[in-house]
Structure formats: structure tokens, C-alpha cells
Design a protein around this nucleic acid. Structure first.
Lengths: 348, 348
DNA sequence: GTGACAATCTGTAACGTTTCAGTATATAGA
DNA sequence: TCTATATACTGAAACGTTACAGATTGTCAC
């Protein structure tokens, strides 16, 4: 091309980040054609398509996110909404990695949207929806009647919940089968002769509280064991509180000889409380606990554990949201993860 | 206004998200004026400015991020770059919350950019810089000669490192004083009569390896204690490896009577290894460990701990990056956090 | 040779914002 | 009265992308 370059061409060949204009200039095509060629539109010639895609790869073209977002409204963002105070620590890192793993070879970015104790949990969701900051949202600490899920369902924004709701509304979720966990835990404790069991449950407002509780009580009556009430604390309480309440409980006549604990950190507190009361784990009392990283058996080898894989949860949740964004039916994007067997690390 | 509305006015008063056009229509001003009024530009009348800002607040106007980003290149995004395999678990959640806390009342969003073992750590940085995906970056696992810091310094993109570099280049950082930690740990162990000390250090490639090691050896010669080499493992190794190596070490003649451990999870493994060898914590050997959440004393009450606050680190790092973006001198955005005293939970 | 049609490509406008280069109006200086 | 200057405002253009509505070919039937 020996014609004189216009200003526009000049700009297009400049050394900034390549844009569609750059590609159009290089291939001698129009911007529109280039745009369509890159997304395999049908009305572009096979030869042209290949040429454009080749050049694009060569010069490392990457669509400008702001351009796409402004024009189409598509943000290519997934938001993970987290409670800054109450979220389980290993949950945060594992779920992030799980999500990351899945969105790694997609154009999606992961943004973390935190909210604190003081705030209405709906606040961050409202913010996201009102500002159109994400194509999809992942929430945790799901409640049976969850205003956040309802809100997003009403506005038609794709989301997935970690944990189920119970509102008669259909949406993607991933959940761990806490009913099965609690039931299995009770059965295991009964199997080693424990008869008076206490449950350290999730906080009442979360859906998996009742799942856990139901699994616990159903299995209790199955095996003919009895419950020692322990509902002055939940896994949301501080380590100190749980420890104190456990010690209190263990000093009573009718103390439990078995615990089921829904969280690893809480289990540390339970054990401390047990020992505060002068009792011994594995002899006076056994504890079955969920854990998400394989550390509890180092703590006390007598501990009985069930593993919950948060990384898997993150991956599943991400898949669900992406699926919904991609047009799949929300009802087809629900998954439940089964607990492992109760693992004993005791070596006698 | 009883004149017939034009199409544009119609659109502007529509119920979509309010834009500058909406505000312009409502106030009867031009878009430009509205834009300037909102950012307190000098050539706007005081009365007009107030009126515009009032209306903006009333209807909940929020600037469209894509619009701003496309026009100005400003992303209003901070990226936290994390290694999906090697990052300390509590670090991830705490640092995220620390960062969140600081950017909460700014327009910034936090995106998490992960990379895995297999990748060059420079990959995610290159991606961010090439695609202009963030205004600022936070990296961890900092090395003395860190290619990522060098790369970003060359391109002039604001960042902060968790940990220092040693390249003679100036950039914002936040670091925990690991020299002081290790020295203090050694002194404490010496104070309770321990003489043969082993160090479980961070991986050699990270800057704080040598900080820790120097603090350790300097204090050793101060107090006249000796080092039992324990450098076949680092805190990056698996729990099993550390446990095995510790047990091995403790079965030797010249075994240590004191440990300094740079990470809480690793400490669990050390203790397990000690007990595997049939020895008792607090009697045969003492262990000083860093921890970021207050759980180690529940694990074994004999453990000696020093707390490292990752949430604070996250907040400091965020402040640093924002400061740099805001034009502050990089050299003025460096901070070092002092270790607490060694805390003993033992109650005899 | 004409019309119809498919195949392939293209220019323009728009998304919401900021910047540039103005345009009006009022005030003051001569 | 005229010009200069400051004050307060405005339209047009641009960032990079996609959607819409053409435009230009070539092929084929008749």
C-alpha cells in the first residue's frame, strides 16, 4: 500500500495496545468485519476469519473490557460476597481458589465484595445489582428464606448460593450434605458406645442449621441415643465462649459422652473445654468434627473427622453461575456433596 | 415544562440507571456541566454545583465504571495476586479483609488474580499490566530480587509488596519484622534454659527467609546458644514432610531442645513430629511459633507464640497502593510491623 | 441481459464518560 | 461605545466495542 496514510491509519498502527482498529488496519478490513471474524460469525468468509484470527493471535490482541462492557453491559465479572467477620477462614481461601480454577480459562475476573457485621447482608447485593457490577454472584451463609436470593431472582441476575434456601424458589446452589454428616456422626459415636450426644450446630438463621439438626436427631432416635442440649452456643460464637460453655456442660451430672461439631475451629474450643473440666478425649468423651483442611488429627489424634471440601464447593458454585449466565436452567445447576465416612486417626 | 419532549429527553428520563444525561435533563444543564459539577471543578457556579450534587444524591447517581474506564483508562480496581498452592490459608482471608476495609469507602473494587505452581509468577502480572486490568497491584511471596517488582517498576504501575525486596529499588511494602521475631524467639528460649535450637524457616527464595535466619543466628551468638540445622524442610513443605523430618531430627543424639517456627500450620507438624519421637513439649523441648489467629494455644498449651496480624498487613498494603496511585512518593509508603512479645499460655 | 438472491463485507451510531475548544453573558477598563 | 477579561456554561469528539442497516460482489435462473 503506497498510498499516503491517513491519520486514522497512523493511529491504528501505533504501539499502544492493539484494538479492533489496529487489526482492521493490518488486515485491510473494516472494524466490523474484524469484530465478527473474531467471534466466528456466520457471514464471514472462512479464509478471512482464519486470517483475522491469526493476526489477532500474532499481535496478542485482547478485547478491551471497558469497551465490551460499555457497549454490551457484559462485565465479565463474578462477584463473591463474603461476610468479613463470620466467614470460616479456610472457606475463604479455598472457595476463592475453587472459583479461580474454574474461571481461569474464561474471560471472567473474580471480585470479592465484603460486608461487615453491622451491615444488612442485602446491601452488597443491592450495590452489585444497581451498579451492574457483575454478571453473576456467589453468596454464602444462606438462609431458608433468603432475601438476597429473592432479590436477585426478582431482578433476574444469575447467582449461586453456598447452601440451600427453602422458599419454594429454584436457583443454583452447592451444598454439603450436613444432614448426612450429622447422621453419620451420630451413628459412628453410637457404634463406639456413646449414648448421650451433644451437637454444636451452625447458627440457627442459616439453612444448614436445621439440616444438621435434623440429621442429628433423626439418627439419634434410630440408634436410640439421647441428646444433651447444647444450644447456647453455635459455631459462630467465639472460641472462648464455646470453650467456657463446653466446660460448663462437662461439669454437669448429665454430661454428654459424645459431641458432633460443625466446624474445625469450634472443635478446638470444645476439646479445650472438655479438658478444662478435667476429662479426657477418647476416654470420657468422643468428638466427631467437620474439617476442611487435614489438621485436626494433629491437634488430638483421638478426634474423629469428616472432610468438607471447600475448594470443590467454590468450583461447583462457579460452574453453576457460569452455567446460568450461559443460559442453562437454574434447576439443573444444583449439586450436593456427600460427606466422607468418619475418619479415625487413633492408633492404639 | 410543557414543551414536547424530544426523544433524547425521553430516554434521559427513562427508568434505567441514571447517567449524566439523566442528570443533565433533570437540572436543565449540559452533560459537561453536570460532569464537572460532580467533581468540584472550579469553573462551575457554587449554586449550580450544589444543585447538581443534590439531585445526583437524590436519584442515586453512580458513575458508570465502564464509561469512566473507557474514557480515562482508570479501572478503579486493585488486584491481589495470590499463589493458589502456597499461600498461607489465614493469610488469604485476613489480607482480603484488611484490603477490603481500606477500600470500602473508595470507588475501588478488589479483584483476586490467582496463579498456580506451574506458572511463572510473572504471568499474572504481565496479564494485568498488558490488559490494563488494574490501577494497582498487591503481591506477596516477595523475593530479594523480585522480577515482578522490577517489571511493574519499569512500566510505572503502582504496587505494594508483602515483604521487602533487596534490589536497591524503592517501592511501597509492608513487612513483618521477622528478624525481630526470630531474635526474640531465640532469646525467650534461651531465657528458659534452651541451648540447642532449630529453625523452621520460610522457603529460601523468599526475602523473609534471610531476615528470619539472620535474626535467629544473630540472637544465637548473643545468648551463646547453638543451632541444630533443620534446613531440609521449610514452612512450604507438606505437613507430613515436616512431621517426618522433625521426628527424624528428634530421634538423633544431638537433638534440639528448642524450635522456632515461622508458621502455625507447620508448628502443628513439628509438635506431631516431636511426639512421634516420644518426647514431650514443654519438658524435652519448647517451641516458639508465629501465628496469625489465636488458635495455637488451644492446640498445646505449652506452645509459645508470637502474633502476626495479616489483616493489618492487608490494610497497610492497600493504603500503600492507594497512596502511590494518589501520587505519594513510593519511598514514603513502606511500613514494618513489630512482633508482639513471646506469649506463653502455660499455666502451671 | 435482467432480476433475484446469497455471500461477504462496510460505515454509522450508540453505550457513558471526560476533554477540548469553544459560546454566551456580565463586568470592567478605556 | 467599544474592547478585554473573567465567569459560567455547552457541543462535539473520542475511548473500543457491537448492532443495525446497508453496499458490493458474483451466481444463477429465465
Amino acid at each position: 500500500m503506497d498510498r499516503q496514510q491517513t491519520e486514522k491509519d497512523d493511529e491504528a498502527s501505533g504501539q499502544g495496545r492493539p484494538t479492533l482498529k489496529t487489526l482492521a488496519f493490518m488486515t485491510g478490513l473494516g472494524v466490523t468485519t474484524v469484530s465478527r471474524a473474531l467471534k466466528d460469525a456466520p457471514e464471514i468468509g472462512a479464509e478471512t476469519r482464519r486470517r483475522v484470527q491469526l493476526v489477532a493471535k500474532q499481535i496478542g490482541y485482547r478485547p478491551n473490557r471497558a469497551g465490551v462492557r460499555l457497549r454490551t453491559g457484559k462485565t465479565n465479572v463474578i462477584s463473591l460476597v463474603l461476610n468479613t467477620e463470620r466467614e470460616i477462614m479456610s472457606f475463604v481461601s479455598d472457595i476463592i481458589y475453587g472459583v479461580s480454577e474454574v474461571i481461569a480459562d474464561t474471560p471472567y475476573h473474580l471480585i470479592v465484595t465484603p460486608y461487615s457485621r453491622s451491615q444488612d447482608p442485602l446491601d452488597p447485593i443491592r450495590y452489585l445489582v444497581e451498579t451492574g457490577s457483575a454478571d453473576g454472584v456467589i453468596i454464602s451463609r444462606t438462609q431458608p428464606n433468603d432475601p438476597r436470593a429473592r432479590y436477585m431472582l426478582e431482578r433476574g441476575i444469575p447467582f449461586a448460593t453456598h447452601g440451600r434456601t427453602d422458599m419454594g424458589l429454584i436457583h443454583p446452589y452447592h451444598d454439603f450434605d450436613n444432614y448426612a454428616f450429622a447422621a453419620e456422626a451420630v451413628r459412628h459415636l453410637a457404634g463406639i458406645g456413646r449414648r448421650r450426644l451433644a451437637l454444636l450446630a451452625p447458627p440457627v438463621e442459616l439453612t444448614y442449621h436445621s439440616h444438621t439438626l435434623n440429621g442429628f436427631t433423626d439418627a439419634l432416635s434410630d440408634v436410640g441415643a439421647s441428646e444433651i442440649p447444647f444450644n447456647t452456643v453455635s459455631i459462630d460464637h467465639s472460641i472462648e465462649q464455646i470453650r467456657m460453655r463446653t466446660a460448663q456442660l462437662m461439669r454437669r451430672e448429665a454430661r454428654p459422652d459424645g459431641f458432633v461439631s460443625s466446624a474445625a475451629a469450634a472443635t478446638l474450643a470444645i476439646v479445650a473445654g472438655i479438658e478444662d473440666a478435667g476429662l479426657k478425649l477418647g476416654r470420657d468423651v468422643d468428638v466427631v468434627s467437620k474439617q476442611s483442611s487435614d489438621l485436626l488429627h494433629l491437634f488430638r489424634r483421638e478426634l474423629l473427622v469428616v472432610n468438607e471440601n471447600f475448594r470443590l464447593a467454590g468450583a461447583e458454585l462457579a460452574r453453576s453461575v457460569l452455567g446460568w449466565i450461559g443460559g442453562a436452567a437454574p434447576g439443573s445447576l444444583q449439586s450436593l456433596s456427600m460427606p466422607t465416612e468418619v475418619l479415625a486417626y487413633r492408633r492404639d
